[in-house]
Design a protein around this nucleic acid. Structure first.
Lengths: 339, 339
DNA sequence: CTGAAAGCGCTTACAG
DNA sequence: CTGAAAGCGCTTACAG
């Protein structure tokens, strides 16, 4: 007897104590729980029953140490992203957590900026994770450099230069190409493009899709209609002014926050949508939900991106061969704003 | 010699190997690193130097096991929150991560809903965390029940019934009381209140502040102007219609998402702000940034809430006595929408 | 000031 | 099918 009756409920057993109580070795208890190694059905049942009624909960950290695993994966989030991106990251996070939990892995958070990846460094130094998922990639991404140096398995949601990392992404190039094509085929010629940080891979890919669509249809691109590296209401407002001057027929924004700024400016100028100018955006987030008129948008399944990235990462961590690149689909949602 | 020259760079040492290389015991190495126990300055310097040049990084998991700690705290986030709340949670998260990292703790994510707290249960069962921070509280909060049962130290950002948990919050009652007072003292009498889930403590507190302000000034509350449990554009739109019918002079929304719906409806009805109806909101998030006219709002320092909750939790985990309740400040930002 | 040894709570060859 | 023992990589009384 190890504990008094009164405290039995709250007692946290160790595997040693369980073994002693049952009169077996801890090897046996371990096997009954893990399912590894031969063990008689009867013994297993006895152990399982005891564990159940006495609420024995194996210490995952100790288990990890014995197996040289942490059962943690690191999740790198940019701490400097815009509000409009939040729903995207939130959904990624949900997908990642779900998949990780299904294999009894936990998710350790690391917030970084492009200037400061020290938080991730700390986690890697402490060896608190068996793998890492990063949720945004930039050109010369310091997170990726760090991860490659470390030699830890990792996945990115997005893409990067290197070949080894697992890269899961929506096909932004193709999505933007299709959206642009549709607009061009409607006879809309002067399509303005309002984009964010051109050092983000995702921006580059989208721009490429926009250019591809024009090339395919043999329609020359008017470079002055392409406005990258936009941020803030003043800059976007100015760009909208200039685009209107240039006779733009449609303004495609690379994210919903930019689109919101475009919409505010158009409203201020009393430009009616879609009569005078058509509008399209990305992400289809709640930020633009309920807008009048409803806004044409691309949609990506962020949760599925998270799930997939996590699944592939776990497989690679388990030593399986996994494909390095995977593009998930997207949807074009046509609404009144481009009618 | 343990390793060949070529692989030396990448070699991950154990404390045992470091000790052997230096010809000291691992006790000594441990002491040199932790600073605990007596050790000669010279020995310490020698150990430190070796560690530095050979890139020895103590295994935090093993350290944790030896100390019966995990060096992790759990962060419970509702996975079902609205977009407008995201910046708030994001900032909390940043504050928590920052404070945790400063004490070499990591943050393990747990996404739950009011219906499903199984993810948190898993983490508690695995004993992967030494303490927990929850970022939203509801009446009969299942997260809090679980945490109290478990007997783990925890903090909430928000408030709850129990007395033991650490509760860090903005003073929502007082904030809403002050905002309402200001409006009442401007001579505005019929103030509509559009609120969210009335089972959320934060909603209750705000409502109380609204009522208090009226009572203090001896102004009767028109119950029909109070609209709790609002969500979705249809319901909010209908409430706005009805409030206007009732001759409302100002509409206070309990969060920026609700306020956005109110604004959309007012715009649709061509009601001008602030001439015909005044408008105020909470959070002062980017969701309403750039709105014309600018919206009067309360502001809370979410990052500081996160920092503080984490700091108090870490202190309690270290066995210190800490105050259970702490209210942080807020700001009232008066803008054109209530002119 | 320093070290040998036990311990944190598990897993897993190895032997029987 | 089962168990004794070594090991995962640390910390920490205890003794010297």
């Amino acid at each position: 007897m190890i504990v008094s009756r009164e405290t039995e409920e709250k007692r946290i057993y160790t595997i040693d104590e369980v073994a002693r109580e049952l009169g077996v070795s801890k090897t046996t208890v371990s096997r009954a729980i893990s399912g590894k190694g031969r063990i008689s059905a009867e013994t297993r049942a006895r152990v399982k029953a005891f564990i159940e009624t006495h609420n024995y909960r194996p210490n995952a950290v100790a288990k990890g140490l014995a197996q040289s695993k942490t059962y943690n994966i690191g999740l790198v989030l940019p701490s400097d992203y815009a509000v409009s991106d939040l729903p995207f990251f939130q959904k990624c996070m949900a997908g990642i957590c779900e998949m990780a939990a299904s294999q009894d892995y936990d998710v350790v958070l690391s917030l970084v900026t492009e200037q400061d990846v020290s938080h991730l460094k700390r986690i890697l130094n402490n060896r608190k994770v068996d793998g890492v998922i990063s949720t945004r990639t930039t050109v010369n991404d310091p997170v990726i450099s760090l991860l490659r140096e470390e030699g830890l398995p990792f996945a990115v949601i997005g893409c990067c230069d290197a070949r080894e990392p697992i890269q899961v992404d929506s096909d932004h190039r193709e999505a933007c190409r299709e959206l642009t094509s549709i607009l061009l085929m409607k006879g809309i010629r002067r399509i303005g493009l309002v984009g964010g940080n051109s050092e983000h891979w995702v921006s580059k890919r989208r721009l490429q899709g926009y250019l591809d669509a024009h090339e395919e249809l043999g329609i020359p691109v008017a470079q002055e209609l392409v406005r990258m590296d936009q941020s803030g209401d003043l800059q976007v407002g100015k760009s909208v002014d200039e685009l209107l001057e240039l006779g733009v027929e449609c303004i495609v924004s690379m994210d919903d926050a930019l689109c919101r700024l475009v919409l505010l400016k158009l409203q201020e100028l009393h430009v009616s949508i879609p009569e005078q100018v058509k509008v399209a955006s990305f992400y289809n987030s709640t930020l633009l939900e309920q807008n009048l008129p409803p806004i044409t948008s691309l949609e990506f399944d962020a949760k599925e991106l998270g799930r997939t990235a996590c699944k592939l990462l776990l497989e690679r961590m388990a030593g399986q061969e996994v494909s390095n690149q995977l593009n998930l689909g997207y949807q074009v949602i046509l609404r009144e704003s481009t009618k």
